[in-house]
Write a protein that binds this DNA or RNA. Sequence first.
DNA 1: AGCACGCCGACT
DNA 2: GTCGGCGTGCTC
Length: 685
Amino acid sequence: MEEDIYVEVAIPIAQYKTFTYRINSELYRSLENKELIGRRVLVPFRKQGLTGVIVEKTKKPEFSVKDVEEIPDKEPIFSEKEINVIKRISDYYISPIGMTVHFFIPDVLVWKKKNGKWIKGIREEKIYVPNVVSTTGIGKLSNRALELLEFILERGEVRRQEIVELGFSLNSLKTLLKKGLIKEEKLIFREIEVKERKRIYLKEKILKKGRYLFGYKTQEKRVSDYMPLIYGFIKKGKGVLIIFPTVRSVEICYGKLREKFGDKVFIYHDGISGKEKIKTWFSLRKLSGVVLIGTFSSSLIPVKDLGLIILEDEHSESYKPLRVPRFDTRRLIYEVSKEKGCSLIFSSTVPSVEAYFSVKKGIFKSFGKRKNLKRDRQLEVIPLNREKLLSEKLIDEIEKSSNLLVISNKKAYASFLFCKRCEEEIICPECEVPLKVYSKPEKFLKCELCGIRYEYIKACPTCSLELIEVGFGIERVEEILRKRFGENVSYFEEGKDTKVKLSTGIVDRELSYPEFEVVINIYPDFLLNINDFRGNEKYFRNILLGYTKAKKKYILITNSIENEAVVSLKNMNPDFFYDAELKKRQEFELPPFSKLILLTFEKRELSLSTVNEIFKNWIKDSGIEEINYRGAFYAYYSKMKGKNRIQILIKNMKEEEKNKLKLLYEKCYRKGIKLIIDVDPKEII
DNA sequence: AGCACGCCGACT
DNA sequence: GTCGGCGTGCTC
């Protein structure tokens, strides 16, 4: 008699473990393809059923287990190689394995059993749209549900995630759906136009196997440099994967590559339809010599004979998700290239300090010749006049140009409202941070942390003195420009052909922006003022990218003329900035000279002493002899949605001791404290 | 995480 | 009485 098979299955729940299931001999016999690792399985879980992925074979356990209910696919969705990478990433980032696996599965393949029926694609992004025109005559409704309905009516369409983020309960959402007041719809991006395939003669270029950093050229130029390279790989029957941080960039690059390589080019991101995702996913396992362009959710698609991975905009902050699994795409891609033995190119017009350091240390090679910036356009660095954001001279400058981009890094109208008598800002009662002033369509206040809106007020609620608006954002800049140029001002994204275009920045959006005759960058100094060790780097990237988009003249309005970033730009020498920044990072033991783990503890009424006690007990209980940490301290945002936020920063924890943090997580969980473990944090907030 | 379960207060 | 909000326990 054939024996039953036991497997470890990763299930999408926030637990640091897999679950054991049995595959009965009959089900196993019925499989045409007998590979088990990487298989999608439908398993009973509690009273319901979930989609899991087999990550290991195992022996019959002591405890009783349930049977795998179904194996729905003809073949595994991941090869062993992807599973190995997932395991390493899950370990490194102390991110529950099930959540990590499920992050990379197309949402249509995540099924769930409810009331005895399997529902397909439950994780597919849903949007909610109103089914009524107003809140009148809709019958009785709880306050919270009514508020939610009003919100959905106001916005027209709202993503599920936004609803949760704004602190509405999913119960209110359910109520509205049940009463037919709103409708659920699937979010599907528009189809992209693909131009006719041009006949283009390319000379193929062969890349020597290795890891490269491709920096300092604009993204547009890099993409055209990839063409002969891709051709070389395709001709050899090897696959190429290109990753971008945003869907927009993916779409633009897809269009460009389709023109050259036709149906050899595939696209994958969260916005394409479920059918398309599955088709792409499974066909890439079989096709040789194809190109896949996608967002980071395509990092683990099993592409046949992958020869090269390109990570575009390597510096991008969106490569680290803000929710579990909290991995970093750069590390993930590095692991994939190691596992699959393929070449790797990290690319950015202004590479991250870490990437620059990797080249210095010889871990990465420089791709192409390293050049200084070209001094082929005018550069003006002028100080900010706070009274008058745009001087007469500047207005004249704008008047002269017919094609001009104005960058103002900060959104909204003003930073906050301030009472001179009380010396107090108007703050969010839940989060205790100043409320931002917005001006469209009318003035209102909004908390940037919890997203709640408040009515605009003119007078101080305590002393009735008239409040003043402090700071400025892009809406203020727009107001000033409109006074002078009226209809000749628009936001770049609107796609209107006006004389003056406005933008909050072009980082991660390089491909969408053409070159402008003149670019004015108004006071990106805000980036320096936030509590973030990468502030300098962000500032440098911001000011340099502005320069690359200016054909004739670049005007930078800044008060940080002594900052290395500005000096570096003036000298047309990026290395000057990187070397100065690395020196600082070394001095303060910051990445890449140290490894950080940021722990954030969240709970209502949580105190520093409680966190200190829990942490110290954990050190004792888990037998850690040496640990270098700072804290506990209140987070930069010490309160969010009514919960206190306390942090501890661990430096250089031994790799083999990191898994002890799971114990701390469970300990906190039992005390009702939410612990966020962020390995290699991008910023400390 | 996500769900069932159970308690509690508000409102018919 | 019963509906919705919210805390907690548990998952092969």
